[in-house]
Simulated scan of single mutants.
Amino acid sequence: MTTRRRFMQYSLATSSALLLEGLLPRLVLAEAAMLKRKIPSTGEQIPIIGLGTADSFNVESTPTALKPLAEVLDHLFGAGGTVIDTAPSYEKSQGVIGTLLAQQGRTEQAFLATKVEGRESSIEEIEQEMADLKGAPIDLLQVHSMINYEKLLPLLREMKQQKKIRYVGITHHAEMAQDQMLDLVNSESMDFIQINLNPRDTKAEDKLLPLCQDKGVAVMINRPFLDGRLFNQVAGKPLPAFASDIGCTSWAQLMIKYSISHPAVTCIIPATSNPAHMAENALAGTGELPDESMRRRIAEYFK
């Protein structure tokens, strides 16, 4: 992460200097609008870069702890993003998101995704568990790690029918679970899946992503940095020259663009508690995305 932080310090300083000198036209900034993708089941468009909150938002609700996280949200929404993913099992994270959205007046602006665990047994219990979102409406409710999906998916569909939520999905963060997810996408009705995809974890591209395209299921991507391990792999190394061909000025952007550029992918949710990193991540949602040839090139570089 040191490499990423140093790069951001340099790039922000350089951009500020260019703005002061009048060398960075306002037109360039105005054109940097975040791309959107359609949710297949409805056609609703959502921004492709979102925010994950596992670990990163698990803090006490004190002014000191909340200040940088509020700035993260400012960067997300300021860049045109709206998608936020959380879960009750992320300890304090879900309550922190609810608190910040309420404080900022963004409860209606956010596209909020959260999860249910295996222990819920009724709609009332699920709603009680979601109470720490401080009234923020839930757009997407997902069965976390597919645990107890047989019981929970019918409950979530009932909540959707009652208009208590808008979309239903399932999640997992490991490639070993993708065979089971293939079966569920084939056999169950759902709007979203959430899976891991990055230049090292590419199994989903073989069968699962094409199936989601065929079935009209939206795809949310987690772990685009492989929990930070990809940064360790490239620490101290310069970006490959081809990164500039798709407008990438950092390793984080190259990793994100790899994942989001697959045509079956709807959005991506890199987690961060660092406002500068959120701004950097959001830039990956602008400009040119890799074509299939470039995606192979990126994957080969990391392998």
Rank of each mutant, 00 (worst) to 15 (best):
R223E: 14
Q233R: 01
F231I: 13
F225M: 09
G216S: 05
P210T: 06
L209M: 07
K215A: 13
L209T: 07
N232P: 04
G228H: 14
P224S: 09
P210E: 01
I221D: 05
G216K: 06
A235I: 03
Q233S: 10
D206H: 05
K207R: 13
K215C: 11
I221V: 11
D206E: 09
A235R: 04
R229A: 14
L230T: 13
D214F: 01
R229L: 14
G228N: 15
C212N: 00
P224M: 10
D206Q: 09
N222E: 06
L211G: 02
R229G: 12
L208C: 08
D214R: 09
A218D: 06
P224E: 11
Q233I: 09
V234C: 08
A235P: 04
V217R: 04
V217M: 05
D206S: 08
L226R: 08
A235S: 13
V217Q: 01
K215E: 10
L208R: 05
K207A: 15
C212G: 02
A218I: 00
D227E: 13
V217T: 04
A235K: 06
L208S: 09
V219F: 00
R223L: 12
A218W: 01
A218T: 04
L209E: 06
L230F: 04
L209R: 08
L230D: 11
G228V: 12
M220L: 11
M220V: 12
A218M: 02
C212E: 03
D227M: 15
F225N: 10
D206A: 08
R229S: 15
V217N: 00
A218R: 00
F231K: 11
G216P: 01
G228D: 14
V219N: 01
L226Q: 11
V234Q: 10
R229M: 12
L230A: 12
D227G: 11
P210N: 03
G228S: 15
L209A: 04
V219L: 05
C212L: 00
N232Q: 14
L230G: 12
I221R: 02
Q213G: 14
F225C: 06
Q233H: 09
K215G: 09
G216C: 05
N232T: 10
N232R: 10
G228T: 13
Q233M: 11
Q213Y: 04
K207T: 11
L226A: 13
D214S: 09
L211R: 02
A235C: 07
L230S: 13
G216I: 07
F231S: 14
Q213T: 10
